[in-house]
Design a protein around this nucleic acid. Structure first.
Length: 536
RNA sequence: GUCCUCGUAGCUCAGCUGGAUAGAGCAACGCCCUUCUAAGGCGUGGGUCAAGUGUUCAAAUCACUUCGGGGACACCA
């Protein structure tokens, strides 16, 4: 309808103007009295035409003829408001029922290949609150983009090499020795989480004291495998499944890392200083240079990361999105510099920084740290607030808000959580529809001509547009916000009207209407990883 | 100190490629179950959109400055 209106307006404008870069915007006015849709085109044109916007609006209106428009109004300073016949809303009911689970989907992505890398937590502990937020965002975004015709690869980068893994191995071995009642020493940057002790305990149950002299590599590999599988398991329960896991170790083997550095050198982006090899990223996007090869000959973490992104570029995505915590923001400039230095288009990579979640308990901020093992883990979160509530909660906020996660509140007020409000609308519909599973085809609706019906239908009608918007702007919270509004309209309709009445025509029409609402709520919630209950 | 980011109702947050009277939820107060789920609906109160200046017909939205919260500034990853 929006596009139709744009076309109608376009055809009413003088031809000269169509060549200018003026875009016709149609928007939904916030207030009902301003009609179903409105445009500010006359205001925009007033500058070009050097005329009063009200005059321009008048001449535009005079040229518009459409049987879909009931009336048009000009409001100061120059808005044109359109009041439409409501047929398009009612006709949409059949459309929704027909499309069912694909209602809202589109092909605006034109099968473009997107890669979204998220979570990517090091396998040195289990997932915590911050991962829950990044995970919810990345997964919801993937769902929205896929629904909109993009070809999305969800990727998890596994940092299974380097110092941290060394510390992981040492930590597990230390715990194991502890259980064997031998002398043990936790490494300085060791991992003190309970999961490390669990791994050691399991090991001891199986092998008793026989592994005391086993080399460190054994403990490292064991740690990576068991923690990674625990992570994957948690994510799956949280309704996130990745398409691809890329291992740092594999990347380092696949690409000769020194050859990556040589490539940078060849392009003139390295130099030696104090025995180290530096990356001249200040020549590109960074403020300062960074070390690639330390003076002891070992590589910094940056090198495998450069190789990893080179790998992604070679795979030929149209766009790559990395979702990182804000604590990595300094890293972005380095990374983009490296991409450019290797001759790739760095604008294909978009880094989204999510503000870390602050955990508040009993009014005090709890510092999250994997090492101390005091963070709230993803599985604890799921157990305490539920998957639906957790997914909904994180999808409600835009990425750049610094959110406080009040654990005491989240635990105690689950029934106040908006996810229940939306779920309740869904469950109500399901309960009414229990005995009306079969679809009744209705060509002409006769009884739905009331305000409350139009209001719900208007929301239902908006859905594809909302999805498109969320996909284009990469903002999942638009969906969350929308589905809440849809639930509100339904609850209002429900309280004002009886669905099942003595009038057979009316009943059938009402049933089709709430079926359309049901489908829309389900599809919307599905995009943010929430599965509504049939009964509450 | 340099850079990034945020500041909107008592609280948690929407709204930000400029549009008409700044919106939700929670919290507060009042009303509505003999009727398909009251985990619901209706109503009331609540705001110098951190402050200032500028751009514009029009600024919460854009630019600059200031003040506040958070973060980043390693031969750690």
């Amino acid at each position: 309808m929006k596009q139709e209106l744009i076309d109608i307006i376009k055809s009413s404008l003088p031809k000269v103007l169509l060549d200018t870069d003026i875009v016709i915007d149609i928007e939904k006015p916030k207030v009902k009295e301003f009609g179903d849709y409105s445009t500010n085109i006359a205001l925009k044109l007033s500058k070009v035409l050097k005329d009063n916007p009200l005059n321009i609006a008048t001449s535009i209106i005079e040229n518009i003829k459409s049987d879909k428009i009931i009336k048009m109004e000009i409001k100061s300073p120059g808005f044109i408001n359109f009041f439409l016949k409501k047929d398009y809303l009612i006709d949409n009911i059949n459309n929704v029922i027909k499309l069912d689970s694909s209602y809202g989907s589109s092909n605006i992505g034109k099968n473009k290949n997107y890669n979204i890398e998220f979570v990517s937590a090091n396998p040195t502990g289990i997932l915590h609150l911050g991962n829950a937020r990044g995970g919810a965002y990345g997964d919801s975004l993937s769902r929205i983009l896929t629904f909109s015709g993009y070809n999305v690869t969800k990727e998890y980068y596994v940092n299974d090499a380097g110092n941290q893994i060394n510390n992981l191995g040492l930590s597990i071995k230390a715990r194991y020795l502890e259980i064997c009642k031998k002398d043990f020493e936790m490494p300085e940057n060791g991992y003190f989480g309970k999961e490390i002790i669990d791994i050691a305990t399991k090991l001891h149950n199986e092998f008793k004291d026989t592994l005391i002299d086993t080399p460190l590599d054994y403990f490292k590999n064991l740690g990576i495998t068991s923690l990674l599988s625990k992570i994957i398991e948690d994510l799956k329960e949280y309704r996130i499944e990745f398409d691809k896991f890329t291992s740092e170790k594999d990347i380092s083997e696949k690409y000769n890392l020194t050859s990556i550095i040589n490539e940078l050198s060849k392009n003139g982006y390295t130099y030696k200083l104090d025995g180290a090899t530096w990356f001249k990223c200040s020549a590109l996007f960074d403020d300062v240079d960074h070390v690639l090869i330390k003076d002891d000959g070992t590589l910094t973490y940056l090198v495998p990361d450069i190789a990893y992104h080179k790998d992604k570029y070679l795979r030929g995505y149209d766009k790559m999105i990395d979702i990182l915590g804000t604590d990595h923001h300094g890293y972005v400039a380095r990374l983009k510099s490296s991409i450019k230095a290797l001759g790739n288009d760095e604008s294909k990579l978009e880094v989204k920084l999510l503000q870390l979640v602050r955990l508040v308990e009993n009014g005090e901020i709890v510092k999250m740290s994997k090492r101390t093992g005091k963070s709230v883990t993803l599985s604890e979160l799921i157990n305490e607030v539920g998957i639906n509530a957790a997914r909904y909660y994180f999808s409600k906020y835009s990425l750049d808000t610094q959110m406080d996660f009040d654990l005491t509140l989240a635990k105690s007020t689950t029934s106040d959580n908006p996810v229940y409000y939306v779920s309740y609308a869904y469950a109500r519909i399901c309960s009414i529809l229990k005995d009306f599973e079969e679809v009744t085809n209705i060509d002409k609706y006769e009884t739905l001509n009331k305000e409350s019906a139009y209001n719900v239908l208007e929301k239902v009608y908006e859905f594809p547009e909302v999805v498109e918007n969320a996909a284009r702007k990469e903002l999942p919270h638009l969906i969350t916000q929308y589905v809440y509004e849809l639930a509100t309209e339904f609850h209002m309709f429900y309280s004002k009207n009886r669905i099942l009445t003595d009038n057979e025509t009316e009943t059938k029409e009402n049933i089709n209407l709430i079926k359309a609402v049901k489908i829309t709520i389900y599809n919307a919630l599905n995009l943010i990883g929430v599965i509504p209950p049939v009964k509450m």
